[in-house]
């Protein structure tokens, strides 16, 4: 089982994502933005960071990287893809997920331990969580406010596609406290907080993030 992690110019959390994949028991494979070949990976993580300096819009330029053409095609065929933070922005810009992420409403970079509720545990990346499982993982972002029009938000809620919601205070102005969403098929997930930083007690507030990576191992084995 191989999990590929893409490195764009300006990615920051690619090494942690590879480490999280390895801790979960997968073989982590480094993928390069300029290489359209996915090197036989079974799933892909688009990591956090500031790809292309967030120039134009966060994720807007990365979305046209050669590796993304292959990822978009494979995601359409059911390959699991997880976009974390900047990766979530790339997924929205790629139209693999609806909506967009804009600057935090309070104009500050946020870095904190954030409680969340996992509201959809039927995706490729969340099956190891209980229904409505409450977890605490790191949130660190500048453009973290999830926005979409009312019809899109209603559809996401109606179809159970809100994967994670912020608990306690809404940290960034995201509509309806949405921290993560999935596509109709449940193989593509975008999440603003960072599960990859929360897989070992030495360096994270919890190991609550590990479930994303163990979930996808099962999803791939099952398929």
């Amino acid at each position: 089982m191989k999990i590929g992690v893409v490195t764009f110019p300006g990615s920051l959390d690619d090494a942690d994502a590879r480490r999280a994949a390895a801790v979960a028991g997968a073989e982590a494979v480094a993928l390069w933005h300029g290489d359209a070949d996915l090197h036989g990976v079974d799933a892909v993580v688009l990591p956090g960071g500031f790809s292309y300096g967030d120039y134009l819009r966060a994720g807007a330029i990365s979305r046209f990287a050669p590796v993304m053409e292959t990822i978009i095609a494979k995601a359409g065929q059911g390959m699991p893809v997880l976009g974390i933070c900047n990766g979530f922005q790339v997924l929205c810009e790629s139209h693999l997920l609806p909506g967009a992420l804009i600057k935090n409403d309070r104009r500050k970079f946020i870095c904190k331990d954030q409680p969340l509720r996992i509201e959809n545990n039927r995706t490729a990346w969340t099956s190891d969580y209980d229904a409505n499982h409450e977890i605490t993982i790191v949130l660190k972002n500048q453009d973290g406010s999830f926005v979409a029009d009312e019809a899109t938000l209603d559809r996401l809620e109606g179809e159970g596609r809100v994967v994670a919601r912020y608990l306690d205070e809404n940290p960034n102005g995201s509509y309806r406290d949405i921290a993560g969403i999935t596509n109709e098929r449940g193989n593509v997930v975008g999440l603003m907080p960072h599960p990859e930083h929360c897989v070992e007690t030495l360096t994270g507030p919890s190991t609550d993030g590990l479930g994303f990576f163990t979930s996808v191992l099962k999803a791939v084995v099952a398929s």
Partner: peptide, 9 residues
């Protein structure tokens, strides 16, 4: 209808 935090700043 989209909030503009930069404009607000």
């Amino acid at each position: 209808e989209i909030l503009d935090p930069q404009g607000k700043a």
